[in-house]
Simulated assay, not measured.
Amino acid sequence: MTEWSVTEPRKIPLTDPVKRLQVRVVNGAVNVVGTDESSARVEVSEIEGPPLIVTQEGSTLVVTYEDLHWKGLLKWLDPKGHRRRVVVSVAVPAGAEVEVGAVGAETVISGVRGRTAVRGVTGDTTLVGLRGPVRAETVSGNLEAQSVTGALHVNSVTGDLTVIDGAGSAVKAETVSGDMVIDLDPAAGLDGPPADIRLASVSGEIAIRLPHPADARVQATTTSGSVSSAFDDLRVGGTWGTRSITGTLGAGRGALKATTVSGSIALLRRPEPETEPATGPDGDGDGDGSAASSPTTGKVL
């Protein structure tokens, strides 16, 4: 086992392969990026408070404080009242498993293909281009996931969830009062399994933008909130108080279920891909000078 006690900004190059990364910090920022290399690199650019301990044992790399553990992280308080802050960047092999726990720290994870787990208290989390399964828990920090292709499972209390160009086949999210905005990538489900989207909130609002044409069974219900749908094939109705959006889009291969108690639910529709003019011999449209449109292909959820 190799260990470093970091008390000032420094870089730590590692030569042994790394297959698992664990990072737990308080305040500041964490940046984890997947690379094509087998080893890892750690850079601490700012540090205040007690030493940050960097340990490599076998193929496991750990970056943390001595008194900060994964279990109980969401309820962690500094018992000694130390003021601490750190800005740390870690480059790991793209296939590594990554666990990040952050108390008040901003977290960015990108380019990782292995399993990813994130726990946060108040800091925001950004996930970009992750290909493995992702599980995220947060108390009040917001979470943004962009072009994530692995299954995404999110639990939040008041933090908002935003999914941009959602490309995964499964998204499961639960919040108490956090809002959810889910934007699904039109190209995501062409070659993969149909999507399974399950969203639940108590008072948070839910907005989902679906590709057009879409392919899913839809069931969205709110007890006292409002509902709206941009799809003519779906039914909007319900009894007094309770409102729902139900129906089938396309062949119904995918599934979309959204429930909230007092929040509103909106189903939006992505615009169809723009047609492109074909270029003819005259460089302006097709052979007779007129513009020809290329066919567009739809996408299933």
Score class of each variant (00 low, 15 high):
G238R: 01
S226H: 03
S228H: 06
A145G: 11
G34Q: 06
V163F: 02
A214H: 03
V90D: 03
A91I: 04
G178H: 01
G241I: 10
P271Y: 07
N31T: 15
V218M: 12
E137M: 07
K71P: 00
T122L: 11
V88T: 04
M180R: 08
I208H: 04
A251D: 14
I206G: 05
I245L: 12
G159C: 09
G298P: 00
R83Q: 11
T116G: 10
P50F: 06
P211T: 13
E144I: 15
L73R: 01
G34W: 04
T55F: 01
P271S: 15
G189F: 04
A230D: 13
A173S: 10
E144P: 00
P13Y: 04
L249P: 04
L74I: 04
E37K: 10
V88S: 03
S169A: 15
H69I: 05
T126M: 13
T107D: 07
V157H: 05
V90S: 03
D233C: 05
S228K: 11
A136N: 07
R253P: 00
V6H: 05
P281H: 03
G192A: 15
R198C: 10
L52V: 15
P211C: 12
S224W: 02
W4V: 14
D282G: 05
G150N: 07
G132S: 13
T107N: 09
R270K: 12
W4D: 10
R24Q: 13
V44P: 02
T242A: 07
T223Y: 00
V30Y: 00
A145E: 08
A230R: 09
I164Y: 01
S262Q: 10
V26P: 02
K257F: 09
T246L: 12
V300F: 00
S226P: 00
S293A: 14
V171P: 00
I182V: 15
M180A: 13
T107I: 15
L210G: 08
T125C: 13
G166F: 04
V54K: 06
T248V: 15
R10N: 06
V163R: 10
V90T: 05
W240F: 06
E3M: 09
V154I: 14
D160W: 00
V90W: 00
G254C: 09
D284F: 00
V6A: 10
V118C: 09
P133Y: 08
A136Q: 11
A151C: 06
V128Q: 11
V30I: 15
V261T: 13
G250L: 05
D284H: 02
G114K: 12
R253Y: 01
